[in-house]
């Protein structure tokens, strides 16, 4: 163990070397972060965070697609049958179990983000086995509550943050 005996105690130079290295690492990180963060959604994108929609003109049985944060949001005025279909599904049958009640604020209005949770395509309304939505890309099938029932998508169509301003006016976001 000759080497153990010759190990010197840390001296002033070791200390300076380590602290200078640490400061250098912080400096590099401080320069790299802006280069990475510049790619995140910018202030003008964040400013478009909400949109208001007049839903008074949407007849029962129709789906209207509105643009929110650059992507589609489906506003579906559901028929009685569609509501019953959605409410009568046993939770055990669902891949991503959620009750229909937890996904709507008013039973006749279903508002979901129109982006398939598989790979982001826009599903087609009133199609598929459950007459909810069918994604044309990889065949994911959603029911009249926008819940995933078949196909590769892992999750239900997302419910955005929204509020009824009046009976016929909705603010999304």
């Amino acid at each position: 163990m000759a080497s153990a005996a010759t190990v010197e105690a840390p001296n002033r130079r070791d200390f300076l070397f380590l602290t200078a290295g640490a400061v250098g690492a912080v400096g590099v990180a401080a320069v790299v972060w802006p280069l990475v963060d510049q790619m995140n959604p910018d202030a003008s994108t964040l400013a478009l965070a909400s949109t208001e929609v007049d839903i008074g003109a949407i007849p029962e049985g129709q789906i209207v697609t509105v643009k929110w944060r650059g992507g589609p949001v489906f506003i579906r005025h559901r028929t009685k049958k569609e509501i019953e279909d959605a409410e009568n599904v046993p939770l055990g049958e669902l891949r991503d179990p959620q009750t229909d009640q937890s996904r709507v604020k008013k039973r006749e209005w279903l508002i979901v983000i129109g982006v398939c949770t598989h790979l982001g395509c826009v599903p087609l309304g009133q199609e598929g086995k459950y007459e909810g939505w069918l994604c044309p890309c990889h065949g994911s099938i959603y029911d009249t509550s926008g819940r995933i029932r078949q196909g590769p998508a892992p999750l239900n169509l997302a419910v955005p943050e929204y509020a009824f301003l009046t009976d016929t006016r909705v603010k999304i976001g």
Partner: peptide, 27 residues
């Protein structure tokens, strides 16, 4: 949309990564 969404399959940080790639909430 489809190819960038491949990264959304990454657990936990997937969605944040797609927003970062897009510079927004969609392509």
């Amino acid at each position: 949309t489809v190819i960038t969404n491949l990264l959304s399959a990454i657990p936990l940080v997937g969605t944040a990564i797609t927003y970062w790639l897009w510079g927004g909430y969609a392509v």
